[in-house]
């Protein structure tokens, strides 16, 4: 018999999980890039990897305190954005897509290679960098919460910090997008030559946008690895695609879209995998093994991306009039 209670509570847990927060923040970064500025950044996985490794390596290899490790990660992503942006932001939009996807792969391969094994841990990745963050926890040890949302002090601390960052990032983005700066950015999305003809330094604005969204991705990368270990295979191109799926689901040029999109994405995914896995166990799907059941969800994500783009390009939260990217 299927344990519906377990399926639902596992799915509900995803609502506030740090992973959901991390994806929401990474998607918000992409919203800045793609939704507001029209930059096709396909290297968000690279920015996230830089955050994760920047933080972990600073802590493990150099023994930096938390704040310094965070700054190292952010610094690395600013440099990465500059390297990507300087050659490509003057070129056609699809070149940025190809270069960012290539650069993110370069980053991943450099973290995976055996050559830098003592620092990066190569394919095994890194772990044991959480001490500094845990030490900052003001919550007394113990277990708190109710129902499925019952966590120990560290898990609560992580969730509180993660969601506080997401909320701050949303407020920040909301504020700048309704300012004259945001107006220029949205103008660039519509037609950068027109904005250039009005005396705005389009190149500089695009660079600022690339850096800002990249820094969001980097911080998301740090949140992402605080409940787990840093493993290079997590930062494949598929990660970027998943973040895009979330962004499109919520609405590309919206503030809340990425957050709600991430929640829906993870809750549905957990619900779906939970259901399929248990249905397979219960013998409802005799033609399918439990491993195959796990792959179904990726197929679902792929199909969902296609359907959203074709039938609801503005996402759930997008303004119907403002068909975010259909031109």
């Amino acid at each position: 018999m299927i344990d519906w209670g377990a399926i639902f509570s596992n799915a509900a847990v995803e609502l506030i999980s740090p992973t959901t927060a991390a994806y929401a923040l990474a998607a918000l970064g992409l919203a800045v890039h793609f939704g507001y500025t029209g930059l096709l950044n396909f290297g968000q996985a690279g920015f996230m990897a830089l955050g994760a490794y920047g933080y972990a390596i600073s802590t493990l290899t150099f023994g930096f305190p938390v704040w310094a490790s965070v700054l190292v990660g952010i610094g690395a992503s600013v440099v990465f954005a500059l390297i990507l942006g300087i050659p490509t932001l003057r070129l056609r939009a699809d070149y940025l897509a190809i270069v960012t996807i290539a650069a993110a792969e370069i980053v991943r391969l450099l973290f995976t290679t055996n050559t830098f094994q003592p620092v990066t841990g190569s394919a095994n990745g890194l772990s044991g960098y959480k001490g500094g963050f845990a030490d900052l926890n003001p919550i007394p040890a113990g277990t708190y919460g109710f129902g499925p949302f019952e966590y120990n002090a560290y898990d609560w601390w992580l969730r509180i910090v993660a969601w506080t960052i997401v909320i701050l990032a949303c407020l920040f983005t909301w504020q700048i997008m309704r300012s004259p700066w945001g107006r220029v950015i949205k103008g660039i999305r519509e037609d950068e030559d027109a904005v250039r003809a009005l005396g705005k330094n389009v190149y500089a604005y695009k660079m600022q946008s690339l850096i800002l969204g990249g820094v969001f991705g980097t911080i998301a990368g740090m949140i992402f690895v605080l409940p787990r270990a840093v493993v290079p295979s997590n930062y494949q191109t598929s990660l970027t695609f998943f973040v895009y799926a979330i962004l499109l689901l919520g609405g590309a040029a919206t503030i809340l879209g990425p957050v709600i999109g991430s929640m829906i994405f993870w809750v549905l995914l957990s619900f779906f995998s939970g259901f399929i896995a248990r249905a397979v166990e219960a013998g409802w799907l005799p033609f399918m093994s439990s491993i195959q059941a796990g792959q179904l969800r990726f197929i679902l994500v792929g199909v969902a991306i296609m359907l959203i783009v074709i039938y609801r390009p503005q996402g759930i939260f997008g303004n119907k009039k403002e068909l975010a990217f259909v031109k």
């Binding site: 096709l40 939009a93 699809d94 897509a97 598929s238 695609f241 895009y244 799926a245 499109l248 491993i291 195959q292 792959q295 179904l296 990726f298 197929i299 994500v301 792929g302 199909v303 969902a304 991306i305 296609m306 783009v309 074709i310 390009p313 990217f325 259909v326 031109k327």
Partner: peptide, 27 residues
């Protein structure tokens, strides 16, 4: 449909097909 949405559709298609392959042929 614009070129960029088309490209994103191809990404979705790529993801779906890839895991359909894995579903049938294993990892």
């Amino acid at each position: 449909v614009g070129l960029i949405p088309l490209m994103i559709v191809s990404i979705g298609l790529s993801l779906a097909l890839r895991y359909i392959f894995q579903l049938f042929y294993g990892g």
